[in-house]
Write a protein that binds this DNA or RNA. Structure first.
Lengths: 196, 196
DNA sequence: CAGTCTTCGTTAGGACCCTAACTATCTGCC
DNA sequence: GGCAGATAGTTAGGGTCCTAACGAAGACTG
C-alpha cells in the first residue's frame, strides 16, 4: 500500500543530524523503520502489479488463497464461512462481505446457505477460480523468487531471523487496545446506551 | 495497512511441502517475502496506533512532516505546493487534495494563492500544527526506538543492508510497466512523467 | 419456555488511495 | 498577438479498509 511517508529515504547522516535537535530520535532505529516500511511497500507493489493483470487485488487474492489452501489441505470442494475467511486473511467480517460481493460478481466464488446454522454462509471457489489460480500462481511465486534473488540463502535466514525478532516486539502491543484503559466496560456500555 | 494475506505466517516446512506440488514456489524466498510484508505491516500499525490518538493518519502525517521538514531545513513559515507535497509523500496530487482538505478543516494547514503562478496553491503549517507536532513527535520517535530495541546495532546495520539489497531489485521493475507491449507508449510516458 | 447473551453476516458511513477527466493558467512557437 | 500544448489543482467515481449498529438465528439460564 503506497503510503511510504517519504518518497526518498533520508540518509543516515540526516537522521543523525536530526537526532541532535530531537533527543528521542534514535537514528539507527528510524533508519531500520523507514527501510522496513519501504521494503514492505515495494514487495507489496510487486505482487500487486502482477495480480492486477488478472483484475485481482490483494484482498481478493487473500480470500481466494484462503479457500484454495483449505481445498489443497483437505481435498477439494471445501468451503469456509465469512468469519473463517476474516480470521485467515486478517480483515474484518465487514470487509469480507465486500470482497465476497466482488468475487461473486466475477464468478469466482459462490455463496450458499450453511446446512447446519442458518446464520452462516458457505463460501466456495468456482471451477473458474481454480483455473484462474492455476494460471496466476506460477508467475506469482516466480515473482517472489525473482525479488529475493539478490539475497543468498544465509542472508535470507538472517533476514527472517531479524524480522521475527522485531515482530516479537510488535506482538507485545496488544492488537487494538491503544488508548490505555479508557475502554472500560462501563464506558462501552455507556456508549451503546447513549445511541440506543 | 492491514492486508497481510495470512494472519498466521506458514511455517517453513509447510512452504517446503507446498513447493513439491508447485515447482515455481521458492520456499525461502516466499518465507522472506511473507515476513517482510508482515513486518512492514506491523511497523505501520505501531505508528498508526500512536498517531490515531491525535486523529492523525499516515497520509496526513506524511503531509505534515513534509511541510515540517522544509520548515526545519529552510527556516520556518515556508510552504509547499500540492505537487511538491505529492512528490515528497509519494501519493498522487488528487490524494493530496483530499488530505489537504481534511487538514485544512482541522485547522492544521492553510491554503493560499501562490504569489507567482495563479495555477498553484501554497500550503503551510499553522501554529496549531506545529504545537501538535511538538506534542506528537517525541513519542513517535520513542515508539520506533522501542520497536527496534530488540535489535543490536550491528543487527540493524545488517537488516538495513539486506533490505536495501532487495529494494535494489524491486527498483528494477519500473513504476508500472509489467506486461510488455500492452501498455501503450503514451500511457507509459504519462506514468514516468508523474514520478520524474 | 421466555429472556438474555452471543455470534452470524450485512449495511451505513467514513477515510484513504487510485485513475481519468476536467478547468484554469502559463508557455512556446509561429 | 494568438493558439496548441503543458502543467496545477480539483472533481468524479471506484476499490479497499475500517467502526458502529443493525436483524436474524442459535445458545444458555432462571
Amino acid at each position: 500500500m503506497p503510503l511510504l511517508m517519504l518518497k526518498d529515504l533520508p540518509r543516515y547522516e540526516c537522521l543523525l543530524e536530526a537526532s541532535r535537535e530531537l533527543p528521542d530520535l534514535d537514528p539507527s532505529a528510524t533508519e531500520v523503520f523507514l527501510n522496513l516500511l519501504r521494503a514492505g511497500d515495494e514487495a507489496f507493489r510487486v505482487v500487486e502489479m502482477h495480480l492486477a493483470k488478472y483484475d485481482i487485488t490483494q484482498g481478493r487474492f487473500g480470500v481466494l488463497m484462503a479457500l484454495w489452501g483449505v481445498c489443497q489441505r483437505e481435498g477439494c470442494a471445501t468451503s469456509l464461512t465469512p468469519a473463517e475467511l476474516a480470521d485467515h486473511t486478517g480483515v474484518t467480517r465487514a470487509t469480507i462481505t465486500g470482497l465476497i460481493d466482488t468475487l461473486e460478481r466475477s464468478g469466482l466464488v459462490t455463496r450458499t446457505q450453511h446446512p447446519d446454522d442458518r446464520r452462516m454462509m458457505s463460501v466456495g471457489l468456482t471451477p473458474r477460480a481454480e483455473r484462474l489460480l492455476h494460471r496466476i500462481l506460477p508467475a506469482h511465486f516466480r515473482q517472489m523468487a525473482w525479488l529475493m534473488d539478490p539475497l543468498s540463502e544465509p542472508e535470507r535466514k538472517t533476514l527472517v531471523r531479524l524480522l521475527t525478532k522485531m515482530l516479537g516486539r510488535a506482538a507485545e502491543l496488544p492488537p487494538a487496545v491503544v488508548s490505555s484503559a479508557e475502554t472500560a466496560p462501563a464506558a462501552r456500555r455507556l456508549r451503546t446506551a447513549r445511541t440506543a
